[in-house]
Structure formats: structure tokens, C-alpha cells
Amino acid sequence: MAEPMTAMPASPQPRQRRRLVRDLKAMPGFTATAWLCIVTLYLPILVLIAFSFNENRSVVLWTGFSLDWYAKALENDGIRNAAWVSVKVALFATVISTIAATMAALATTRTKPFIGQGLVYGIINQPLMIPEIVTAIATLSLFALVKKLTGLNGIGYLMLAHAAFCIPFAYMPIRARLETMTLTLEQAAADLYAPPLKVFTLVTLPLLGPGIVAGAMLAFVVSLDDVIITLMIAGPGETTLPIYILGAIRRGITPEINAVSTILVAVSVLLVMLLFIVQRRMQR
């Protein structure tokens, strides 16, 4: 009433601080739950890693930073042997399973659909569908029988078992890569008079490269991390790093275990990060 001169605006003045975005997707408590999951997934591992650098023998009280436990772990003959066994087995399993998986992936994507394709998928993925403990004792039974019949012993059994359960892991990314690759490039090469084998070595294989690398890395990580099957079938002198760690935990918790565990985790994480980068490349 005091200021009749300024015309009243037709609308109320926009309020000072109002919400400008309405997020209809948001659900109450979901963000907190997601963060809780991340904390749950990572806190234990981070604590483990932290205490691997603890100067004290205690895995409870932090006293100071040191690399002593890594030095101790690297000097430990048991750990060194186990690491060597792990690498040997994983390399063998990776090579065999990647070759077999690549061939199988070519057969299931680069030829026409065939009768029994479902069965083939089923067989290749079988190691993923059956509880590992069942596969473990079944394989143990077979190997025991073969050993008795042939008298042959050695680490070959363990390597073969690893190769078998690594195949589906190697197969997945290779098949995925083949399915997204168009046939046109291969057809173009064939059109330019390249014989099938040349088409394969000059066109298919280089394009498939990232898929094969991804498959091999997965196979390596899976073999390196295996516990149950190895525990069941590894003979004396065939202790892998995870089996060594399991034994050590059963004997009592020491920071040395934390150090070895951290190394093993670091190897896996590095490989998986590399894998992510390779896959990013693949998507482009």
C-alpha cells in the first residue's frame, strides 16, 4: 500500500532458495546402501594391506611403517617355492585354455549355427555351473584312478585341471569379441583373393587380439586364485601360493601372511585393471 507506484508483479517473486532439480529416480537410502557395500567390500582388504606394512608383529596395533614383512616373505623358501609353482601352473593353464577357447570360440561364431550348439555351450560352461567342491573331488577321484593304473605322477595333473576350469573364463571375452566383430572385413579380404588361411592370419587374428589377451588374463587370474581344486588334487611339492596361505592361516595369523596376500592381490588387481583398459580399447 505504501508503494503503489511500482506495479505489482503478476506472479509472486521467485523464492530465494528453491530446489531446482527434481530427481524422480532417486530412492531414499539407496545411496547410503551403495556406499555401505563399497565399504564392506573394500575395508577388510584395505586393513589387511595396511597391516602388511606394520612394523610390529601385531596385526592389531599400528606402530609404524616398515617393509620387513615383505622382506621376510620373500626370503621364505616355502613362499618362494609356492609362488614358483603358482606361476608355472597358471602359465601352462593360460596357454592351453586360451588356445582351446580361441578355437572353440571360432567354431561357435564363425561357422553356421549347427545342431548341438547348445550342448557345446553347455559343456564349455560346465565348470562354471557345478559347485567347485564337486568338480574338485570328482577330479581327485579320476586322477587317483589314473595314477593307480599308469603309475605316472607329477605336476601335470594339476596343470591339466587348471586348464580345464580356465577354459570358460578365456572363452567368454573371446566369443564376445568375435560376436561384435563384423564379417565384412573378412569378406572384403576374401573378396580380394585372400585364401581362408591368409584371411585368418591377416585379418581375423589381429582383430581378435584384444579378445584373446583379455581371455588369457582372466584365465591367468582365475588359475592364480584357485583354492579348492588345487587343495584337493595337489600332491606334495605342488603347493601353490593360495594353498600355502591357507596352511599358514590355519597355523596362526602373522603379518607375513598379510604381505604375501597383498602381493597376490596386487597382481590380480593389476591384471584386471589392464583387462579393463584392453576392453575399453575394444569398445572403441
Binding site: 506472479s11 509472486p12 521467485p14 528453491r18 530446489r19 531446482l20 532439480v21 527434481r22 524422480l24
Partner: peptide, 10 residues
């Protein structure tokens, strides 16, 4: 419809 909020006005 109310799916978004205006920056200004009513």
C-alpha cells in the same frame, strides 16, 4: 506434469 521443477516462476 511435475517431472521437472522450474528454475523460476510458478
Amino acid at each position: 506434469a511435475g517431472f521437472e521443477l522450474p528454475t523460476q516462476g510458478s
